[in-house]
């Protein structure tokens, strides 16, 4: 089943869930299925990982994906590769424009480094990742560097990196086609200390189409 965007009717989706800010999701998308993440209110980072559903050690690899596509940002056409260079999913639709995969996920400990000790007990993406990963038998050891859908982290030719705002907006979405049976693991980012969620984390909607 190919995933031409305008042919996918929301009412025909077999998956349709809203993930609140700071919550997560884990689920399987069969090969050929289309999976869409909608940024309902805009500027909401959706920290996302993909795994080979039949071998969870064959998992999304940010650096292999960046190198093999020869570009830092993800957008329509980006082939999301595993650590074994297997194709997990392809981005088939993107009304946002580009997405980060260098910046990783927030953690309570990295918040302390970035913002100070007072943030140690704020909720963070890696809390969500390990919780939902545990439900499929995966520990922290199995969690690699992720994609930040809807997040804008420009790298510069002189070696700089910044966190910027303003690429996404209410209703923008990104869609991938599963190129094999995949597990999707998402943390809907609760970060309050930088503009990645517009200073106000909000829900995302997940839609899926498959036989």
């Amino acid at each position: 089943m190919s995933a031409a965007l305008d042919t996918l009717a929301v009412e025909e989706a077999v998956l349709d869930v809203v993930v609140e800010a700071g919550d997560g999701f884990v689920g399987t998308v069969p090969a050929g299925g289309s999976f869409r993440i909608v940024d309902l209110n805009g500027n909401q980072a959706a920290d996302t990982l993909f795994f080979d559903a039949h071998d969870l050690s064959n998992r999304y690899s940010a650096m292999d994906t960046i190198r093999e596509q020869g570009a830092v940002y993800l957008t329509t056409g980006s082939k999301l590769l595993s650590s074994n260079l297997d194709l997990l999913a392809t981005i088939t639709g993107d009304t946002c424009g580009r997405h980060d995969t260098v910046g990783g996920a927030c953690a309570q400990e990295s918040n302390v480094i970035r913002y100070g000790r007072h943030t140690r007990h704020q909720h963070a993406c890696r809390e969500t990742f390990v919780k939902y990963a545990a439900s499929i038998g995966m520990s922290a050891r199995g969690i690699p560097h992720n994609i930040n859908f809807f997040m804008n982290v420009p790298l510069t030719s002189d070696g700089g990196l910044t966190f910027a705002d303003g690429v996404s907006a209410p209703g923008k979405y990104v869609e991938v086609r599963a190129e094999r049976d995949i597990v999707v693991l998402i943390s809907n980012c609760p970060q309050l200390n930088n503009p990645c969620n517009g200073w106000n984390p909000t829900p995302i909607r997940l839609l899926g189409w498959w036989q």
């Binding site: 650096m63 260098v102 910046g103 990783g104 990295s110 480094i113 970035r114 922290a140 070696g159 990196l161």
Partner: peptide, 16 residues
Amino acid sequence: VDRLNVPDTLKAQMSA
């Protein structure tokens, strides 16, 4: 289990 994290290293120090 506590290993190098390149994304955290880069974003905390604003470097590519």
